[in-house]
Design a protein around this nucleic acid. Structure first.
Length: 619
DNA sequence: GCGCCTTCATAACG
DNA sequence: CCGTTATGAAGGCG
C-alpha cells in the first residue's frame, strides 16, 4: 500500500500568526509515520549512496542505509517529542527550531496585506536599529580598534531576544507570506530574522533528520551566492552544488557526501517539496559585499554526482523555477543595470524625456511612458528645491547662528546641540531616527561641505524616472537600489501661507499639497520600543503645527508623482538648513525599506482626500 | 543536552 | 583591489 500526499487543513494558523483576518489555511503534506518505517527496508536504490572515493564503485556501493524513496516527508512532530521540547525550553535561551513543515495556501488579499505589513515593520526595525548600532560600534572601534563590528548579528540577536523573528513556529515550504519576489536584503542575517532562510552561513536550509519523524532531512531553501565553483545559473534553471568537502579557503579538497543538506535536497526532490531561492551577488548600492534577492520557488528536478572542477566529487541539483511567479528580482536588478549603461538600447520605446529636470538635478530624471501618449509632466517647470516666501528667510526665531567647526562637526558643536546632542545621520548619510525636525548644518555654519550633518540639502543622488502605469497613473521608480534610511529627494513646489492657500482654493484650484496631512511615518523609522522597553521617541526639537501649503500647479519635482500607499516605502522627514523659521521646514523624503530598482516608490499622503487622485497601491 | 563541527558571512588587514 | 585571516553564531548531529 502506497502512502499518498494528502493536503490537510491545520486549524491553528490564525492563533499562530495573530492575524485579525485569517481566511487562509495551511496545507500540510503528511504521511503516517508507521507506514514509512515499515517500508524503510528497501531494495537498495544504490545511486544515492555515499561516494567512497572510487568512481567505479559509485554504482555498486550499497552499504549506506536509506529510507525508502517512496516514504513521504513526515511533518508532524511526535507528541512525546513536543512535550519534551516544552519541558526543556524553560532552560534554553532559545527554543529549538520548529519541526513542522507547512505550506501556506489560500491567502486572501487582506491576509497578504497583513503579512506584508508585518514584514515591513520587521524590516524597518531591523534596518533602522542596525544603522544606530553600527554607528555605536564605529565609535567604539575608534577607541578600541580590536573590537569587531557586526551590527547585523547584534541586531538580529536583540530582535530574537525580544521574540521578533518571524516564522519561527513553523517551517514554511514555498513562499513566505509577506515576502515578495524581488525583495532585496543587504545582510544575510535579515533572511534569518524574517524566516526566509534559517542558516546563518550554510547555503542549504533543511529540516534536520533528527527533527523529521521519519529520519529524512527535507530541504526548504537555498542561497545561490557563488560560493561553489561548480554552480551554473541561467536564471530559470540552476545547477546547484551541494555542500561539504571544502577547506577554510573554500577550495574543494575532498569528495562530498550525500548527507545533511545534500540528502535534504535529494529528499525534497523525491517528495516534490519546492525550495525558495535567494541569490546573493555584488551590486552597486549594496551595503556590504553582497546583496540578497528573493527570486521565488524552484522545483528540484534531478540530481547527480560528478567530478567538479577541483577534481573532487560534488553533488549537483538541478533547480527549475516554477511557473506563475512574478519576474525574477535578480533579473530586474540586472535589467536596471543595463538601462543605466545604455537606456535607449535597453528600452527602445517609451522614453519621453531623458531629463525632465533639464539639468537642474545633479542626476537626470527620466520620463517614461510606454502605455499611452500622455506627456503631461513635460508641462511643468522643474523645481529642485522648495520656494519659500521671502519673509521666511528673515531671522524671526533668532536661531540663525550656525556652528564654527572649521575642521568638521563634532558631537559638542552647536548644531549637534540643536538636534538634541546627536547628529541625524550616520557616516553613510543614512537617517538614524525619524524626528519631528532635523536641523542640518547650513548657510551660517563654518563647517566644510562634506560635513556629516549635510545630507538632504545636497539633493538627489539616485537616478529616478517618472513612469506611466495602468494602476497608479504616474508613478516614480529608481534605477538604483536604494538602501533603507537613504535620502531620496525633497517634495518641492511653491510655498503658500495659510491665507494665500485659502485665496488659491477659492479660485477653484486644487493642486495644493498640505504638509500637515502626510502620515507621521517618520515615527516608524527608529521606533525601538519593541526592543528597548524604556526607549522614548525623539520629540526634540519640537515644532509648531504646519499651516502652509505647497502649490504644485506650475513648478514641481519628481516627488509630486509618487503614489499614495497605506504601506509606503518612503516617508517625510522635516528638515531645516537654509533658514531658521521652524514653521516652514523642508519636506525631505527618505527610504523606509530597501527599495529595489524599478519598484514603485510610495508615500502616505494621509487620509484620502480630493487633493490627491493617487490610487492606493501596496507594493 | 552539551560540545563539537560545519557553514555559499563579514570586515579588517596586508 | 585582491587574497587571507580573525571573529562569529546558529543549527545539525554525535
Amino acid at each position: 500500500m502506497e502512502p499518498k500526499l494528502e493536503p490537510i487543513d491545520v486549524p491553528l494558523v490564525s492563533d499562530y500568526f495573530q492575524n485579525p483576518n485569517p481566511n487562509f489555511s495551511l496545507n500540510v503534506p503528511v504521511v503516517d509515520a508507521n507506514a514509512a518505517v515499515e517500508t524503510q527496508r528497501s531494495d537498495g536504490n544504490n545511486d544515492r549512496s555515499e561516494f567512497n572515493g572510487n568512481l567505479d564503485s559509485i554504482e555498486e556501493n550499497d552499504d549506506v542505509e536509506f529510507t525508502d524513496p517512496d516514504a513521504l516527508a513526515l511533518v508532524q512532530v511526535p507528541e512525546q517529542q513536543e512535550l519534551a521540547n516544552v519541558e526543556s525550553s524553560y532552560r534554553r535561551k532559545h527554543p529549538p527550531r520548529s519541526a513542522e513543515l507547512v505550506r501556506v495556501t489560500n491567502l486572501e488579499i487582506e491576509d497578504e496585506r497583513y503579512f506584508r505589513e508585518l514584514v515591513r515593520k520587521t524590516r524597518i526595525l531591523y534596518d533602522s536599529l542596525r544603522i544606530n548600532v553600527m554607528l555605536d560600534d564605529e565609535r567604539r572601534r575608534s577607541l578600541m580598534p580590536r573590537v569587531r563590528a557586526r551590527s547585523d548579528m547584534k541586531v538580529a540577536s536583540l530582535m530574537r531576544d525580544s521574540g521578533l523573528w518571524l516564522n519561527q513556529d513553523k517551517r514554511i515550504v514555498g513562499p513566505i507570506p509577506g515576502i515578495h519576489v524581488g525583495d532585496v536584503f543587504c545582510y544575510r542575517m535579515e533572511l534569518c530574522v524574517l524566516g526566509i532562510h534559517g542558516q546563518i552561513q550554510a547555503g542549504i536550509d533543511y529540516l534536520s533528520m533528527k527533527m523529521s519523524s521519519n529520519g529524512e532531512p527535507i530541504a526548504t531553501s537555498v542561497i545561490v551566492s557563488g560560493g561553489y565553483e561548480d554552480d551554473e545559473d541561467s536564471g530559470d534553471v540552476i545547477v546547484y552544488t551541494g555542500h561539504g568537502g571544502q577547506d577554510k579557503n573554500s577550495r574543494q579538497v575532498v569528495h562530498q557526501k550525500l548527507e545533511g543538506g545534500n540528502l535534504g535536497m535529494e529528499r525534497s526532490m523525491h517528495h516534490e517539496v519546492e525550495v525558495r531561492v535567494v541569490r546573493g551577488f555584488k551590486y552597486k548600492g549594496g551595503a556590504g559585499d553582497k546583496i540578497y534577492v528573493y527570486d521565488g520557488i524552484y522545483k528540484i528536478t534531478e540530481y547527480w554526482f560528478e567530478i567538479g572542477k577541483s577534481g573532487f566529487g560534488v553533488y549537483k541539483f538541478k533547480l527549475v523555477r516554477m511557473e506563475g511567479q512574478p519576474e525574477m528580482g535578480s533579473a530586474i536588478l540586472k535589467f536596471a543595470e543595463s538601462i543605466q549603461a545604455n537606456p535607449l538600447e535597453a528600452r527602445p520605446v517609451g522614453y519621453v524625456s531623458l531629463d525632465i529636470s533639464r539639468n537642474n538635478e545633479k542626476v537626470p530624471v527620466f520620463l517614461f511612458n510606454d502605455i499611452d501618449d500622455n506627456h503631461e509632466p513635460m508641462g511643468y517647470d522643474y523645481q529642485v528645491t522648495t520656494i519659500f516666501p521671502p519673509f521666511v528667510y528673515h531671522n524671526v526665531n533668532g536661531h540663525g547662528g550656525g556652528c564654527d567647526c572649521v575642521d568638521g562637526c563634532t558631537l559638542d558643536c552647536a548644531c549637534a546641540k540643536k538636534n538634541g546632542g546627536k547628529f541625524a545621520y550616520d557616516l553613510n548619510r543614512h537617517l538614524l531616527r525619524g524626528k519631528p525636525l532635523v536641523i542640518e548644518c547650513g548657510l551660517f555654519c563654518s563647517c566644510p561641505p562634506n560635513c556629516c550633518n549635510r545630507v538632504s540639502q545636497k539633493g538627489v543622488r539616485n537616478k529616478f524616472e517618472v513612469f506611466r502605469s495602468m494602476e497608479t497613473g504616474w508613478g516614480v521608480r529608481s534605477l538604483d537600489l536604494i538602501q533603507a534610511g537613504s535620502f531620496i529627494c525633497e517634495y518641492t513646489g511653491v510655498v503658500l501661507t495659510k491665507g494665500q492657500a485659502q485665496l488659491f482654493t477659492m479660485n477653484g484650484e486644487d493642486s495644493l499639497v498640505y504638509p500637515s496631512r502626510f502620515g507621521e511615518r517618520w515615527a516608524e523609522w527608529g521606533d525601538f520600543s519593541q526592543v528597548y522597553s524604556d526607549d522614548v521617541r525623539p520629540s526634540y526639537p519640537s515644532i509648531p503645527p504646519l499651516e502652509f501649503a505647497i502649490d504644485v500647479s506650475k513648478v514641481r519635482n519628481v516627488a509630486c508623482y509618487m503614489s499614495h500607499s497605506p504601506c509606503p516605502n518612503v516617508f517625510v522627514q522635516l528638515v531645516m538648513y537654509d533658514h531658521s523659521n521652524y514653521a516652514f521646514p523642508h519636506l525631505m523624503l527618505f527610504a523606509m525599506e530597501n527599495i529595489p530598482p524599478l519598484r514603485e516608490l510610495s508615500l502616505d499622503y494621509g487620509a484620502a482626500d480630493e487633493w490627491t487622485e493617487k490610487l492606493a497601491i501596496c507594493n
